[in-house]
Every structure is written in structure tokens, then in C-alpha cells.
């Protein structure tokens, strides 16, 4: 289904290098540019075939912007996006279009991500028709197969989105994303708006589909517990930068960056017998219009020292294949270690 040429082994499916996306702010009487929102400010990662990479962080950290920039929903400010080693960020629209069938997206809100005036058949068939992959009764068969894959009845193709619940609509969106035989699906908070029991259905569906079809997933989420369940690797973002990037087990068992630790310790544990100590971060996330100097996390970091305020730490290998953007090689364990023990016990 995917492109004819098989990629050379070892080359990642998607590579993002130094991605920047700044949104200009216009103001004043003449509507001139008065500043920038530094939404994404130098982000690099890669995703292999069949792999899930999660981008986690709090609202405003730029994780959704990364997803949309990779999809080329808007032009990027700087950096490179490579699909199978081929640069796609600077392709003209005509050359980009055939590559779009390899990357699809599932958005957060299952109510606004489906056109209310289209039947399911037309929604799901849209990418197939766009790329001229099938027509007529073959198209109906394709749509039917996709509905089977997402565990919806085939008859559903003649109905409208408003007849379905949030979870079912998210299945429809997944079917559309699978339709052109994509290699990579970007899930932008794809399960965040769903109820707990439905969320579990969709999370399980996504991992099943990944195993079955060898999909790569870029899973953008703020929900660490969900991420831990379905990811292979995790990138933690804070104010437009990746602060830590590691495989699942390493990141969740021994988080390195102080922000990752705070984030993990802040998640409420559904077990009343566990009483744990947590790192409560002071204050709020600073504005991405005017990010702090030096390390962007220094205004809230419990381990801050003088160098953090002037010298920006780069993402570097701190051992065990883990990348972290912190000046400390070993982050003091006094409080955090206790936190971790408690969380592990959960």
C-alpha cells in the first residue's frame, strides 16, 4: 500500500531536525508585527516504522504545533522535516500532495473533525478518491473494510456523523486516517476528549492497528498514564523545546529532567493507599512570547542554580540512550527519588 520503494533499513520513517515555528503577533494601528510567539523553537526527533513516539507536555508547550508542522498544515519557520530521508518541508504543493497519503492525522475533538454534512462513506473515501486509489464498488469495499478495521458496522457508511457518539466518531476519524494506507498517523490529543471507558477502547484499537499494519504513531498527549500504556519512546516538551527524550521504560522508571519528574509526580494515582510526596512546581508556565533566558524551566525548577539563568542547556546524552536538556548530570535524588518510589508502588 505504501510507496513502492522500500526504505533502506535503519533509516527512520520520519526525521525532524531543528524544527522551529514562530507565529508573528500583529498589533498597533497599522497592524505591524510586534513580536513572535515562539511556539516551537528547535525540536529534533525521529520515528521508525511501526514505532510510537509520544510528545507530552502541558498546554502551550508547542506539541500540537509540531504535529501540524510535520503535516505541513502551515509552513515552518526553520528546520527540516524528512520522510524516508526525503525533505518534505520545502516541497511545492504539487510534489507534496502524493506524499500526504503516507501521513494522516486524528484530531482531539471528535465533533469538529468530521464534516457534519458528509456521510461516513464520503468522509472515509475522501483520501482514497483524492489519490485515485479506487472507485465505484471497489471504493465501497475499501470503506467497508476500513469500518471493519475500526470495529464499526459496515452499514454505518450510509449515515451521518451526528448519529454517532464521541468514541464512535473517533473510530471514523481513525478509519479516514488509515484510508490511504498511511505509514504514519499523527494523533493530536486523539483520546483526550473521551470518557475513561471509551478512551480505553480507542487506545486498545490504536495499538491493535499498529501491530496489525505496522503503523508509526506520533502520539501527542498531555496524559502521561495513557502515553505510558501505548508508547515506545517519549519526548517531553516544555515551552517549545524538548527537555527529555527516552524510551518508555527509562523515562517512566528513572526520569532525569526535573520537569519530567515534576510532571510525573503531579499525576494523581488512582490508589487511595498510596500517599506520596510530590514536587509541586511553583507558579505558571511562562509566556512563549517572551520565554525565560537560559534554561526555559529555570523559573520553576526546584534544582535551579546560577548557570541555568544564563546558559541554555542543550539536549544531550546523559547515559542509557537518554537525552536530557539539563546542566546537571545527576539530578539530586533526595526528594524526587522518594516520589518515584511512591509512584512505582502504585
Amino acid at each position: 500500500m505504501s510507496n513502492s520503494q522500500t526504505p533502506s533499513s535503519g533509516r527512520p520513517l520520519l526525521e525532524v531536525k531543528g524544527l522551529k515555528k514562530h507565529f508573528p503577533i500583529h498589533g498597533g494601528i497599522l497592524g505591524g508585527k510586534t513580536g513572535n510567539v515562539y511556539a516551537v523553537d528547535g525540536v529534533s526527533f525521529s520515528i521508525n516504522r511501526g514505532e510510537t513516539l509520544s510528545l507530552v507536555g502541558e498546554s502551550g508547550c508547542g506539541k500540537s504545533t509540531v504535529g501540524k508542522a510535520v503535516l505541513r498544515l502551515y509552513p515552518i519557520t526553520d528546520g527540516e522535516v524528512l520522510l524516508d530521508g526525503r525533505r518534505v518541508d520545502n516541497l511545492p504543493a504539487g510534489e507534496l500532495r502524493p506524499l500526504r497519503k503516507r501521513m494522516q492525522v486524528v484530531f482531539q475533538d471528535p465533533f469538529s473533525s468530521l464534516n457534519p454534512r458528509q456521510k461516513l462513506r464520503d468522509i472515509i473515501a475522501e483520501p482514497i478518491v483524492n489519490f485515485g486509489m479506487a472507485s465505484g464498488s471497489e471504493l465501497d469495499d475499501r470503506v467497508g473494510d476500513l469500518l471493519d478495521k475500526v470495529r464499526l458496522p459496515r452499514e454505518a457508511m450510509y449515515r451521518y456523523p451526528h448519529e454517532f457518539s464521541g468514541g464512535q466518531r473517533q473510530r471514523i476519524a481513525i478509519a479516514r486516517a488509515l484510508a490511504p494506507g498511511s505509514d504514519l498517523i499523527i494523533c493530536d490529543e486523539a483520546v483526550s476528549a473521551l470518557d475513561v471507558s471509551v478512551k480505553a477502547q480507542i487506545v486498545n484499537l490504536l495499538s491493535d492497528l499498529q501491530d496489525e499494519l505496522g503503523l508509526a504513531l506520533l502520539f501527542i498527549s498531555h496524559d502521561l498514564a495513557i502515553v505510558e500504556h501505548l508508547t515506545h519512546r517519549v519526548a517531553v516538551m516544555y515551552l517549545g523545546k524538548i527537555v527529555e527524550l527516552a524510551d518508555r521504560k527509562t523515562l517512566f522508571s528513572t526520569p532525569h529532567h526535573p520537569y519530567t519528574r515534576a510532571l510525573l509526580s503531579a499525576v494523581p494515582v488512582p490508589d487511595p493507599t498510596v500517599k506520596r510526596q510530590r514536587i509541586i512546581l511553583r507558579g505558571d508556565v511562562p509566556s512563549p512570547i517572551n520565554p525565560p533566558s537560559g534554561c526555559r524551566f529555570h523559573t520553576r525548577c526546584p534544582f535551579v542554580f546560577d548557570r541555568c539563568k544564563v546558559d541554555e542547556p542543550q539536549l544531550r546524552d546523559v547515559g542509557m540512550g537518554r537525552m536530557s536538556a539539563c546542566h546537571l548530570d545527576v539530578v539530586p535524588d533526595t526528594v524526587p527519588e522518594a516520589n518515584r518510589q511512591a509512584a512505582v508502588a502504585a
Binding site: S197, A200, A225
Partner: peptide, 19 residues
């Protein structure tokens, strides 16, 4: 169906949630 933090420490592969 509620995912719990720390799940990766107990299992080797990815776990399934109860639906």
C-alpha cells in the same frame, strides 16, 4: 479501563486496558 502510571515497570511489552 483507567491507565495507571507505572504500568511499564511491571510488564515487558505494552499492556492492554480493560474495555
Amino acid at each position: 479501563s483507567m491507565p495507571k502510571l507505572g504500568s511499564s515497570l511491571h510488564e515487558t511489552g505494552r499492556s492492554k486496558l480493560t474495555e
